[in-house]
Amino acid sequence: MGRITLDKVRKSFGEVEVIPPLDLTIEDGEFVVFVGPSGCGKSTLLRLIAGLEDVSGGEIRIDGQDATMVPPAKRGLAMVFQSYALYPHMSVRKNIAFPLRMAKMDAAEQERRVKAAADVLNLTDYLDRRPGQLSGGQRQRVAIGRAIVREPAAFLFDEPLSNLDAALRVGMRLEISELHKRLKTTMIYVTHDQVEAMTMADKIVVLRAGHIEQVGSPLELYRNPRNVFVAGFIGSPKMNLVDGPIAASHDAATIGIRPEHIRVSDEAGDWLGKVGVSEHLGSDTFFHVTCEGISEPLTVRVGGEVDLRYGDKVWLSPDPDHLHRFDDKGLRIA
């Protein structure tokens, strides 16, 4: 079981309040991703849940039990660190067995669990090596192995993929998702990469400056961002945000339109613009179009077969059904 509840949890370092009182519930078996720009407090929040930092106020409950003052090891949570934090002087086997050894589990059971974990993570051939002899991806797997042998109530991941190269990152992303489907254990995952958040999460928690900006499923956040910040943060390429008279004509302070929700025509439309740089992905093409009366170039996504050149004149029309409107406080207008 792994239901984690944060009740008015607060954290300050001296004078600085990094997390103002915050409420959040993580259901058992959920894959929750904390996402936000660096310095938004997402790692601090994770460390509060882990017990590596003490809360300045509020209550953390795990499965209904007050865990606020419980030391990290007694919370039944396992953590995978950004630097992996493997013990360099121990073999892979000993690294993975370390939490079991600390729990004074009998040797046969330790061996059985290490074997099982190594099997799941394809580490069987490396059990007698030291971390220094492993590649980045393998080290990552050892760190995960050390976490799963404990059969914890929840896994905590602190930017686990940020030290891997791009290709490995995609592979590990799938492996972690796969692991979650198989174990059905609660996972809390911290990242600054919204692609990781979108692809892995059941529930995304968008944080800014210690505040929760929005909580919801990836598609909910994508379709109905609650404010300008979430609108701009989730989705790649970013949503186009337009203010000024054009926004006012839609009764909003700011309007947002995603690149795939703009229609392109060479004859007629709402906005006349000039094609700038284009990025061809093969399946799709992104055009950067400078329009009259709009300060930033708009990003437009079209099919790969559309052929426009630098300097061409085009008409753009936003799809009214997918137009996001925000008021002068940046909040969504329903």
Binding site: L52, P72, A73, K74, S83, Y87, F98, M102
Partner: peptide, 22 residues
């Protein structure tokens, strides 16, 4: 690295084990 000590704490090592094993 400090993260190693934190990892040991998460893994259930007390001060004594932390000193002795890590």
């Amino acid at each position: 690295p400090g993260e190693i000590l934190e990892a040991a704490r998460m893994d259930g090592a007390g001060l004594k084990e932390e000193l002795l094993y890590v």
